[in-house]
Structure formats: structure tokens, C-alpha cells
Design a protein around this nucleic acid. Structure first.
Length: 492
RNA sequence: GCCUCGUUAGUGAAGUGGUUAACACGCAAGAUUCUCAAUCUUGAAGCACGGGUUCGAACCCCGUACGAGGUACCA
């Protein structure tokens, strides 16, 4: 008996991991790490009908990618294995029979038809539907008789009928229920397999789990869990029930009709660190005012006292903002490495200064998937309207833009191909600005417009000219002049 | 229906009987800049409702409304 904290994440392999699941795993991981304890992964696959091929790998991959490495689990082993519930099947029935012996459980031979009928009658008369205890007090002889006759049976928990049961939850406080509302739930199914609820209790105990972190959909069955722990004489773990993560005010997040799975978010251009950071904040608040944390920092900061009682709505805007913050923290090299595939989606040109491009892109990127649209003008000048030259704040219009471009063109054309760099272009542009005696924007806005053909660009005219190179810059300026002249001709 | 839980700005939230009710995202305005971003400054916006208890309530109690979860031989 050690006092080390042991937490577990116990998913069912029934599909993808959505962020709500991942958050539960994250909290379990953080709590263990904060206390220098162990984080255990257990696969709960007692329901063969819902088993989805490949789901276990998704669980492994997601947790690993998020950095939630488990200390014990199916693949890494550990002292209290096996860590796959279906491989532990032998033990559960024994425990259930032990409960029958001690009077905390009983054999039930009711078939499904009777139970369905019972439920219908109860519902029709407005009584809460629950098992009526038909087999609750069968004598030993009666039970043996039916057993010998080979009648299928289940084992049910015998809950007290009177009094109340209370338990403590670290998030929700003390919760008390009337025992009369507790159903005699099934522990062992007809097929001899344990139900989730029973397997969970036995597994958590035999694996030495000290803190049970799970969604609050289990809040109302917790009293029955505790009755089980008490019947066995086992220590009750600390319960930490987490509120759900919502898609909107009334709907839980679900990957069915959305995109809430971790892998989708990564595919959409989010950084894993940002996603992990964000979901930590969904339903939990750190003590101080900072909210950007690495996984290690989270493990330090984490405190169950900060877990909220009410559901949290998944907010893509905030996730994006956090993602942007993480992107800005990257070095230019790291940023470029991650951004390059996205740049290459629309910008195939090989002869550009990628580092310079990365520098311009980095503060303007919240999501990597924003990038292709931002750099698509590099390969080919988009078609655009001359009205784009009109900008109130820049004090430009098609007319004075034409003047500026005509003045700038020969000046830039005179620059040696080998001298084509930021400093030089800057120098030439400002000479022209000085010569014309106009505001900077009057020359630079037309330049930017002519060579990008876009309303918004990641960088100003000088930056873009450098990126594009002399040849392309000159060609696009000529194109711009032609467009402006054509428009002027058409008008006058 | 019954049981349990929840409700602080649009969103995430701090707050545990006396505060100008933090902070972050978003929004608006301004500064800055050759656009857009980034950055900095400022602003608008909130205790679900009704009763108590108290000198005093976002905080305690009761009720109402709304919402969620549970009520399976699913997990």
C-alpha cells in the first residue's frame, strides 16, 4: 500500500477520440504527473458489439502525439496487467460470486421479455423504471434448481432499499441520493461478461487506482460504485467528475456531426501543443492570469480545485488565437519547416527567399491552412480591377498610381539584378517618393498592388518586390501600368 | 415522469458575506506601419428570475425558469 497517486484513462475502442475524451485523459495525466504518480492506460473493450477496428491505434496515436505518455498500459506492460479488459475476463465472475456469498448481490433469472414488459408497465404508470427485485430473495435451493436447469442468468447488485448514500466528489462536493432510487444493476451479463460498471470498480481497485477522473455522466452511478467498494471492503478512490465539453449551449461535442476529433484539428493546421493547451483550459482555470502553458508547466499548475462544475463550449476562435500565439513563439526555422507544405500548395516557385517569406507570414498566421491563400499570388499575378489602386488612407487612386508606377518603373529597372535586395529596393522607392514629393503610401501602395494584384498581402510592396525578384516585379509593374492606362483611356 | 447536477459579459472564466466584479478570446476605437497582420493603449459588454437570512449577498437558504446527465444484459 503506497500513497502514490495512480490515475487512469480507460477509453472504449469505439471510434475516434474527440477533445472531450482527450481532455479527460489530459487531466488524469496531469494529476498523476503533478504528484509524481503513475498514469495508466486501460482499454475497456467489454462491449464487442461496439468494438471498432483500429480504434485502439487511434487511442495510442492520439495520446502519444499529445504527449500523454502512459506509465503502464497494454503495450508497455506494468505490474497490474493485463491492461486490456477483455483479457481480464476470468476474474470478474469470481468477484461477483463473492458478493453473492456476502449477500450484496444475487442471481437473477428474469428474461428480457419480462424486463421489457415490467419497464413498460412502470413507465405507463409513471413509476421510475427499475428492476422490481423479482429474484432478489430467491432461496439458495431455488437458485440452485434454476442453475441446474440451465436457465440463463445474470448477477445483480443488491442495493439497500432504505436510507441514503453519500459520496464526495472533488469537483461537485458532497452528493447524497436516496437508496430507493438505486437500481439493482447487473454486474455479470448472461454471457458471463461483466458490465462496464462492475468491471470498472474491480479493475480500478485491482490496479490500485487512487483518483478516478471521468466525465460527469457517471456522477449518478457513483453511489452504486461506492456500495460495491464497501461490500468488498475496498478503499474508495477520490472521485473527480468533469463537466462535458459542448458544441453549443445544448449539444455535447460529437465527432459525428462535426470536427472535434483531435486528428481533424491537427489536419486543419493546429499545433498539437496549442490544442492540448486549449483543451486544458476548457473547464479548468489556472490560478494566475497566464494561460499559455507547455505540458510540463500544466503538470505543475494543474489543480483539481480549478475544475469547473458547468459545461464548457468549445470555442474555435479561442483555439485559433492560442494557436496563433504558439505559432508566433516558434523560431523562423521551425515555422518555415511546418509552413512549407502549405506554402507549396499554391507557391511552387523555387527561386524565392523562403526565410524572408516565412518572416512575413509568421505573425500573420493563426492556422497553417491560412497560408496557401496568402501566397498564391507569387506564382501568378491574379486578375484584378484597377479600382484596387484606390485607397483612401493611402491617398491613392488609379490616376496618381499610374504616375507613381511610371516613375518607379525605370528607377527599379535600373537596379542591377545582383543588387536586388530589401535595402536597395527601399532606397530606390524612397528616392522616388522624395522626387515626387508625396506620402510614402502614394508610391508604395501602387507598387504593392501592381505586383500582388491583391487587397491584402503578407508584407508591403518592398518586401514583395524582394520576394518576387526583379524580373517578375518589373513585368508586373508594366502590367499594372498597362491596366491603368487602359482604364484611363476608356474613361477619357 | 423520477433522481442528480449546473446557471458570473458573445465564449472560456476569477471570485467563496463588504472588490470600481479580475483575466483571456472575440468585438469597437486609437496609436504604429507601404495594405493586412503583429504590437501597444483605451472602450462597450455580466452575477438567470423571485423570495428570504444578514447592517451588508455573485457568494448562505427556499422556490421558479432554463440547461445537462442518469434512469440499458452501452460504455
Amino acid at each position: 500500500m503506497s500513497n502514490t497517486v495512480r490515475t487512469r484513462f480507460a477509453p472504449s475502442p469505439t471510434g475516434y477520440m474527440h477533445v472531450g475524451n482527450l481532455r479527460t485523459a489530459l487531466y488524469a495525466y496531469l494529476l498523476a504527473k503533478k504528484n509524481h504518480g503513475s498514469f495508466i492506460l486501460r482499454i475497456e473493450d467489454t462491449d464487442q458489439e461496439r468494438y471498432v477496428e483500429g480504434a485502439v491505434d487511434i487511442i495510442y496515436n492520439t495520446l502519444r502525439q499529445a504527449g500523454l505518455n502512459w506509465d503502464e498500459g497494454p503495450d508497455v506492460g506494468g505490474p497490474v496487467g493485463p491492461y486490456i479488459q477483455s483479457e481480464r475476463m476470468g476474474m470478474f465472475k469470481k468477484y461477483a460470486e463473492q458478493l453473492v456469498e456476502s449477500g450484496h448481490a444475487y442471481y437473477c433469472f428474469c428474461d428480457k421479455d419480462r424486463l421489457t414488459e415490467l419497464r413498460e408497465i412502470q413507465q405507463a404508470s409513471g413509476i421510475p423504471p427499475m428492476y422490481d427485485g423479482h429474484c432478489r430473495n430467491l432461496s439458495k435451493e431455488e437458485v440452485q434448481e434454476k442453475l441446474d436447469a440451465g436457465i440463463p442468468y445474470v448477477i445483480r447488485q443488491k442495493c439497500p432499499r432504505e436510507g441514503t448514500t453519500s459520496f464526495e466528489d472533488a469537483v461537485f462536493g458532497t452528493i447524497t441520493v436516496d437508496n430507493s432510487t438505486l437500481d439493482d444493476q447487473i454486474l455479470i451479463k448472461t454471457d458471463g461478461m461483466p458490465t462496464y460498471n462492475f468491471a470498472n470498480v474491480v479493475d480500478d481497485h485491482t490496479m490500485g487506482i487512487t483518483h478516478v477522473i471521468r466525465g460527469n455522466e457517471y456522477l449518478s452511478s457513483t453511489p452504486k460504485y461506492n456500495l460495491l467498494y464497501q461490500a468488498f471492503g475496498w478503499d474508495i478512490p477520490v472521485y473527480i467528475h468533469c463537466p462535458p465539453v459542448m458544441k453549443d449551449a445544448t449539444h455535447k461535442l460529437s465527432k459525428r456531426n462535426g470536427d472535434a476529433s483531435f486528428e481533424d484539428l491537427i489536419a486543419k493546421g493546429y499545433l498539437t501543443e496549442a490544442v492540448v493547451n486549449y483543451i486544458a483550459l476548457l473547464g479548468w482555470a489556472p490560478k494566475g492570469e497566464n494561460e499559455i502553458f507547455t505540458l510540463e508547466e500544466l503538470a505543475q499548475e494543474f489543480d483539481v480545485a480549478g475544475i469547473s462544475k458547468s459545461p464548457a463550449i468549445f470555442d474555435t476562435q479561442k483555439l485559433k488565437a492560442i494557436n496563433g500565439a504558439y505559432i508566433r513563439k516558434l523560431s523562423v526555422e521551425e515555422f518555415l519547416e511546418k509552413a512549407l507544405p502549405y506554402i507549396r500548395q499554391t507557391c511552387k516557385r523555387e527561386d524565392i527567399d523562403l526565410k524572408l517569406l516565412a518572416q512575413m507570414l509568421q505573425p500573420r498566421t493563426e492556422l497553417f491552412t491560412d497560408i496557401p491563400d496568402q501566397v498564391d499570388f507569387i506564382d501568378a499575378l491574379p486578375d484584378y480591377d484597377v479600382e484596387m489602386y484606390r485607397h483612401k488612407k493611402m491617398k491613392t487612386n488609379p490616376e496618381n498610381s499610374l504616375v507613381s508606377l511610371k516613375e518607379l518603373l525605370p528607377a527599379l529597372d535600373a537596379v542591377d539584378e545582383g543588387d536586388w535586395n530589401l535595402e536597395k529596393i527601399h532606397e530606390v522607392c524612397f528616392e522616388v517618393i522624395g522626387k515626387l514629393g508625396v506620402k510614402n503610401g502614394v508610391v508604395l501602395w501602387p507598387l504593392r498592388t501592381a505586383i500582388s494584384g491583391k487587397q491584402f498581402t503578407p508584407g508591403g510592396g518592398i518586401d514583395l518586390a524582394e520576394i518576387l525578384g526583379k524580373k517578375e516585379t518589373i513585368a508586373r509593374m508594366k502590367d499594372g501600368i498597362a491596366r491603368l492606362e487602359a482604364a484611363a483611356g476608356a474613361q477619357g
